[in-house]
């Protein structure tokens, strides 16, 4: 039971991360290869505050705020550079974050921060709490997708210049996408810090950013149920099958490649295609 609970806690955290990235990359079309940096910001912020004696629930908002502010700063970068340049810039942000954390003694350097106080819940309770937050994140994502904001994001992703011509405040909405998406990563980081009770630089590297991106792409860019399914699949599969666990990176790499190569809509796209095929009368 304990094992299942901790596994589902990690799954919940990954769902929040993937939904956050989906907001930036899926809805708004701004590719980010540095999502783990915001996750790390949240985790380190929560770890330091918890060590300083702050209670669990008081830590969540500051962790989100710190990650969100960094997200807005990177969002400003997204106003300067586009497409490939943005991808590499966000990747650079990830390396920069790690490089700084590794050299700072007050952040634990290479060793990380140990003995972070827990949230005061047993593992089942903490799992339920994390999954609750994941559900909230999903509801927020679904709501944004239907709202005016979601439509504007869609327009920006589709054709930024056309959106600008139509009088859309492209810069403001891009910053909003980065702020919301990265604040969600900050929340995930805080949940991680209290759940694992240890944070170290090796959990927030480029590979982790790629893993989050993988969840979004495999699930289906832009689709809330797809991204949730992607996060669940890529979290649970390596845990349930020992064979897969040894080749976790091969699985991520292979899936990322095969999905973009053969089914760019991800699992959501496949589901839509199957539904469409089933609903259409056979041509005889």
């Amino acid at each position: 039971m304990d094992y299942a609970a901790s596994l589902l806690t990690v799954a919940g955290i990954n769902i929040i991360l993937a939904l956050g990235l989906n907001l930036i990359t899926g809805y708004c079309g701004q590719i980010s290869l540095g999502h783990a940096a915001f996750y790390g910001m949240g985790a380190y912020c929560a770890a330091l505050m918890a060590k300083a004696g702050w209670p669990f629930f008081a830590v969540l908002l500051p962790a989100m705020a710190v990650a969100g502010v960094l997200g807005i700063v990177v969002g400003f970068a997204a106003l300067r550079v586009r497409h490939d340049f943005l991808a590499i810039t966000t990747m650079g942000v990830g390396f920069l974050f790690l490089g700084i954390v590794r050299q700072q003694e007050w952040l634990g350097g290479e060793m990380g921060i140990y003995n972070i106080p827990g949230a005061g819940l047993d593992s089942t309770g903490y799992m339920l709490l994390t999954l609750g937050f994941a559900a909230l994140a999903a509801a927020l994502s679904a709501h944004i997708k239907r709202s005016w904001m979601g439509r504007v994001f869609n327009a920006i992703a589709d054709d930024e210049d056309a959106a600008l011509t139509a009088g859309v405040n492209v810069a403001g909405y891009k910053l909003a996408a980065f702020a919301i998406g990265t604040a969600m990563a900050g929340l995930a980081g805080a949940l991680y810090a209290h759940g694992i009770r240890y944070v170290g630089p090796e959990s927030f590297g480029f590979v982790d950013s790629v893993a989050i991106l993988c969840m979004v792409v495999v699930g289906g860019v832009g689709s809330v149920p797809g991204v949730i399914a992607g996060a669940l699949l890529l979290t649970l599969l390596p845990q349930l099958l020992q064979v897969v666990s040894d080749y976790r990176l091969l699985l991520y790499g292979g899936l990322l490649f095969l999905v973009t190569r053969f089914s760019p809509g991800g699992m959501a796209g496949m589901a839509r295609a199957i539904a469409a095929a089933a609903g259409r009368p056979r041509a005889s």
Binding site: L33, V210, L213, L249, L255, L256, F257
Partner: peptide, 10 residues
């Protein structure tokens, strides 16, 4: 780009 990252990790 994403396919390429996947290819490299693989």
């Amino acid at each position: 780009l994403i396919a390429s990252i996947g290819l490299y990790v693989g």
